[in-house]
Design a protein around this nucleic acid. Sequence first.
DNA 1: ACCTGAACACCGTTCAAGT
DNA 2: ACCTGAACACCGTTCAAGT
Lengths: 213, 213
Amino acid sequence: MQLTRRRVIAAAMDLIERDGAEAITMDRLATELGCGVMSLYNHVPSRSALLDGVADAVLSGIEITSVPTGAWHEQIRTQARAFRQVAMAHPRCTVVVVSRPPSSARMLRPLEAALATLCAAGIGGQEAVRIVRAFVAYIMGSVLDEIGIAPGPDSSDDEEAETHRLRLRPADFPQLVSLTAEYRASDPDADFEFGLELLVRAVAAMHSAGAAA
Amino acid sequence: MQLTRRRVIAAAMDLIERDGAEAITMDRLATELGCGVMSLYNHVPSRSALLDGVADAVLSGIEITSVPTGAWHEQIRTQARAFRQVAMAHPRCTVVVVSRPPSSARMLRPLEAALATLCAAGIGGQEAVRIVRAFVAYIMGSVLDEIGIAPGPDSSDDEEAETHRLRLRPADFPQLVSLTAEYRASDPDADFEFGLELLVRAVAAMHSAGAAA
DNA sequence: ACCTGAACACCGTTCAAGT
DNA sequence: ACCTGAACACCGTTCAAGT
């Protein structure tokens, strides 16, 4: 099959997802694609540009079905979930996304959409920017947290939970140890929704308070 | 001066802070320290372990002056600020922290402290875990956001703001373009406090509602 | 226009040898 | 116990040559 930029980046994403972000190598990618290393450079100017391409591809997967219907908080929830979903579909590529600055305008589309939603709800510019920042921070942090929990290629699902890989001494970490069950049982989706709801409600409270004033 | 693990890691941190996380190389680190490459291996078993050491060193900088005085929300605020402050003192090392799983129990100390604070405030285990997760997510995300804004070694403080490096077409990004001023003028500290307050209030509201029920 | 091998400077790590 | 040079497999990228 023809070598193409799309195919090169797709293969890179597969490789990262399989072996981790550290494993990405022009050599390895070439053998993966069954071509000489140098062929890659016909479609991607450098390794760094390749990673930019990966980051762009991940973020471009976000559906901005900007349904203008519904209350602003429902819209925001939807956008937040879309963001997280895409990130979790490519957890290890998301580490790449987060460790380099945005490289294309397209990557800012979700930001634009969120701002539009808030401004349409009558929230002022300065405040809208801050709110979006808070949401983005929360979402990215959540995703990283989820990834960090079962990250490496060596994450065997043993008896011991991730927190216990480190052999926490109960004397030093009473809470963490006693909450092991809670950590283990925790449902990432539910946890994410919990924090999301926290933020949405806080914004709603602030906004209605402002409107009342 | 004697080569030592502490010195090796400190030099690594300097190098990362100066040239970025990608720049860390055993060769480069050795010349930085004025020793042969192989000397490093007497103090650090591998490059990966070196990065673990860096992550550990960053997080260990967090002061857990667990002042049991004060309301829980003031304690939480203090802890959140301490976390952020340490991260922002080593922005580029923080990317390293965030891209690898915790490698030592010490790195979980801040988590333990936060859980202790919440539980002492009478918040249940399951809920405390979720709340802490939300806070950690928010803080890490905020820090990454701040770093991402002025990331590379090529961040010249031109006329154009970071958002404009990408030449956003006003037709496609009306909000982002019209809010350029707000983005440019934004004060990271104030933004961080804003989101932190959002979360604290949401938790407070939820908690008092639960207590009332 | 796209592919590619040879070549170069660089990188992580092992080993065997030094002190 | 700590240091180190030589050696090896691997990596990103340039160049010149092919189709």
